[in-house]
Computed example of a mutant assay.
Amino acid sequence: MRRPFRVLLCLAATALGFTTLSAPAYAAAENYVALGDSYSSGVGTGGTYSGGSCKRSTNAYPRLWANTHAPASFNFIACSGAKTADVLNSQVSALSASTSLVTISIGGNDAGFVDVITTCTLGSDSTCTNRVNQAKTFAQNELPARLDNVYNQIKQRAPSARVVVLGYPRFYKVPGSCSVGLSDTKRSAINSGADTLAQVTAARVAAAGFTFVDIRNAWTGHEICSGDLWLNSLTWPVEESYHPNKNGQARGYLPALTAITG
């Protein structure tokens, strides 16, 4: 009975050896391209940015993922201020048949993110609500075709890639403990805009056969006016406002992406 026992031990050891070797081999074969806007480039995390006006941060989730997974190649193309047209005109060219992983956040700037925040900060409750409703109408009626164009281009240029589309968080805790800032009416309106954007994006991602990461639940308890912010409120420099901070990237986006990619 000892000989079969030894054989079993050898087989087990061999299987374990193959398992141990396969994970690094798979990671080393990953060719990762990170597309998208400022939520992917890492604006809001402070420090020094690269890529000129694209403001790519070493604290952004694509860079953090690459640091921990050591892919065979990593192309960080995400750019602050990007809209769907910018992805089509200057980002998707980085994709190829060898690309095996693509991440992207896009659509917020198309829907007028900056103008919504500005209007709600400076205007009345009704002015804010009206502007958010305009953004929601755009997201429901015009954004789907724009997203489809982006996703179709990604599929054509990187047909074998896993494509992960990451959404945007709700901005505010309502009611929250902010001593100053926007009213609960404005906060609720802005959050409803984020919900509409998530719903529209999720539908188009599903139609494309990609994976959508809804970040809203992970962000619960970490919105502006909560006790543990993962999102900047109005801050300096102003362009850092209403963007994920270091914790938002490292504790919000990175774990969500890692849960999908393994």
Rank of each mutant, 00 (worst) to 15 (best):
5 F>H: 13
8 L>A: 15
12 A>I: 10
14 T>N: 07
14 T>A: 15
17 G>M: 14
17 G>N: 07
18 F>E: 06
22 S>M: 10
27 A>P: 08
29 A>K: 15
32 Y>Q: 10
33 V>D: 03
33 V>W: 01
38 S>V: 03
39 Y>P: 02
43 V>R: 02
49 Y>F: 02
54 C>K: 03
55 K>A: 01
56 R>T: 01
63 R>Q: 15
66 A>S: 14
67 N>I: 03
70 A>K: 14
75 N>W: 08
75 N>C: 10
76 F>D: 07
78 A>L: 08
79 C>A: 10
81 G>T: 13
83 K>R: 15
84 T>E: 07
86 D>A: 13
86 D>L: 09
89 N>L: 13
90 S>M: 12
91 Q>M: 11
91 Q>A: 10
94 A>R: 05
96 S>Y: 06
99 T>G: 09
110 D>V: 06
113 F>C: 02
113 F>Q: 03
114 V>M: 03
117 I>A: 05
122 L>K: 11
123 G>R: 10
124 S>L: 14
126 S>W: 14
126 S>Y: 12
128 C>A: 13
138 F>I: 09
138 F>Q: 04
143 L>M: 05
145 A>D: 08
148 D>S: 13
159 P>A: 08
163 V>L: 03
168 Y>Q: 01
177 S>Q: 11
177 S>F: 09
177 S>V: 13
179 S>H: 12
183 S>C: 08
192 S>P: 09
193 G>A: 10
198 A>Q: 12
199 Q>A: 14
200 V>S: 00
203 A>Q: 09
204 R>H: 10
208 A>W: 01
209 G>W: 11
211 T>V: 15
211 T>W: 06
212 F>V: 05
216 R>Y: 07
217 N>C: 04
221 G>T: 10
223 E>V: 09
225 C>G: 11
227 G>L: 11
229 L>A: 11
229 L>P: 04
230 W>Q: 00
233 S>M: 04
236 W>P: 00
237 P>I: 01
241 S>P: 05
244 P>A: 03
248 G>N: 08
249 Q>G: 00
251 R>I: 02
253 Y>F: 15
258 T>I: 04
262 G>I: 06
